[in-house]
Design a binder for these strands. Sequence first.
DNA 1: CTGAAAGCGCTTACAG
DNA 2: CTGAAAGCGCTTACAG
Lengths: 369, 369
Amino acid sequence: MNVRSKPDSPPTIYDVARRAGVSISSVSRVLNGRDNTRPATRERVMKAVAELGFVPDGAARALSSRLKHVVGVVFRRPCNTDDGGTDESENLLFGDQINRGIEIAAQRRGFDLLVRSVTIDERTPPDRIMTIAGKCDGLILHDQVLTRSGISAIARTTPVVSLAGRPGTDVANVRSECAANMRELARHLVEDHGYRRLAYIAGHADSPDNIVRSRSFTEQAQALGAEVLTGPAWQGDYSAAGGVEIIRGLISLGATLPRAIACANDQTALGVIYALTEYGLDVPGDVAVTGFDDLPFARHLRPQLTTVRQPIQEIGARAFEVLHAMISADPSSPAEPVGDIVLPTELVRRESCGCPAEPLTPRLWRPIG
Amino acid sequence: MNVRSKPDSPPTIYDVARRAGVSISSVSRVLNGRDNTRPATRERVMKAVAELGFVPDGAARALSSRLKHVVGVVFRRPCNTDDGGTDESENLLFGDQINRGIEIAAQRRGFDLLVRSVTIDERTPPDRIMTIAGKCDGLILHDQVLTRSGISAIARTTPVVSLAGRPGTDVANVRSECAANMRELARHLVEDHGYRRLAYIAGHADSPDNIVRSRSFTEQAQALGAEVLTGPAWQGDYSAAGGVEIIRGLISLGATLPRAIACANDQTALGVIYALTEYGLDVPGDVAVTGFDDLPFARHLRPQLTTVRQPIQEIGARAFEVLHAMISADPSSPAEPVGDIVLPTELVRRESCGCPAEPLTPRLWRPIG
DNA sequence: CTGAAAGCGCTTACAG
DNA sequence: CTGAAAGCGCTTACAG
């Protein structure tokens, strides 16, 4: 088969104008729904557009209208591993959902999403992020993709919103409330279930969210008289594989496991449950396990995962809306007060903490005929 | 807090040139690593760039260099549901991984990914896809986002690669081999395990991949003398929720389940296993279940999922490479023969079909201490 | 309602 | 090695 590998150079607005017998101004007007173009003109233009398969060039349009209708998103992906990077890619579920939320919100306003992943080892690479900044009207930065100074540098010339970061004076930030529900989770495990020996498997040590979750959980549990195991043995990395390794490591060393393990996120909990089951331990009978996020799979696990639900897509959507407001703000008007947006979370008690099973969700049920 | 909602209008190449005391040509050259710019000039330019926080405008750059360094990706997302769209978003795992593969490959060549999701109900929306086409140098279309004629229309002016579609004369296509391993799966279930009554839970009826998987499985199983249940009761939608509904529906109707159920993808299998377990049935003891894709979670399920592994990220990476070749092809040179690229798959026998458990994966194991 | 012209911010031959 | 100038394909006042 012989495929035209590259179409002939695409038609421009001049080609359309010539074919329709009008000026390029008119073509531009009908294409943008401007003014009152005479119906006859309008029709001839549309006809020419269809015949030529004309698509306006986004770069030219952006250059003259000073708006690209594109927002950039930068997120962190695990370092490339030669042997089965597949496993690592799990912990992107959360990021992917955020991006989905951003994308859907953006679409409503005619914006598209330009995505760029960075590996952990290439942090603080302002250069790499600069090149993406030039391609969009504003940037949304996921947690841990850039240092504060790097963010500030970019924010000098581009509107920036950070996710789960720390609010700054030059960028807006969107995150979800972590402290209250981690404390409630600790209280639930200690008071309601009577567990006295707990542990928290951490996420990335430098993640603000992780720090808050860890401290809230630990302090509340200790305040209620429970013991919380800590130390490097409990340092995870937000991935299922990380959770698996921690449990296998502890058991192989003959450690006595705690009665309940709170994980930094659902992915970690998935790995922990998998590993515990591997050794014949029952969850939650022998060890209770909880997550954070409430990813879609959490309810399809056995046992169903007790976790703290974040409004993941909503976080993305809000981030876009804030960014959009910054992008379309009138530069001459007084600056808008935008800063830190905090979305509510919710403790979801399912089976893995020791609570009874959730009843069947009616909306999922539908008889087949 | 009072945040500058929009930075002052960003510096241009003229600002840099003025500050460095050189022409814009020189600024452009050092920024693009062209020629032999004198070290002194180079330094002054870089200094001005840093002081100004200059980032070249992507639109202007694209307009004059005739290359945007952006590839567009269009994929299908489930229709918005008001009540818990969360559940539906599961079946995007596959698409997200493909996109990741594209993105990583693209980054190696200095390209970024522009993503655009379309809902099922807005199929054949050439207009919507036209607007994204104008923003990039080429397009990668996931399965089922556009009709053949819609694809052809776009391919008139833009390089296009389709995923898991049908090869055409105007677009390249990348997919993975489905038939051989679905036949092998059928043979494995019938001959090795001795199951005589099977079923296949379909994906979207109009998905080429689904059609091939269904037919290959069914024909092979029947050829070996087994029975394969069919009909609308077995019509899924590639989602876990779809799998759950099918099983609940059948059981609530008092249907006798088959001995083994092959699912169109892993997501569906996840839901099927969940629902079967819900009714106290053992997998694979009472009913064997298999998937397709080998998503990362497949190995962390209990039982571990028997499935057909697709090189998911590789599919994305190859799609990008093909597209990149089309984009950078010399228009005056003879057309390159590009057409249908088929990547190999692999049957992964784990527990859910009735095989013994996979041994611990050594690479995951690491003592803690 | 429509056209001629300027300008968006770069890159790239072309001279020097 | 460097600068002046043209041009990429649009949008948008400005006239008419």
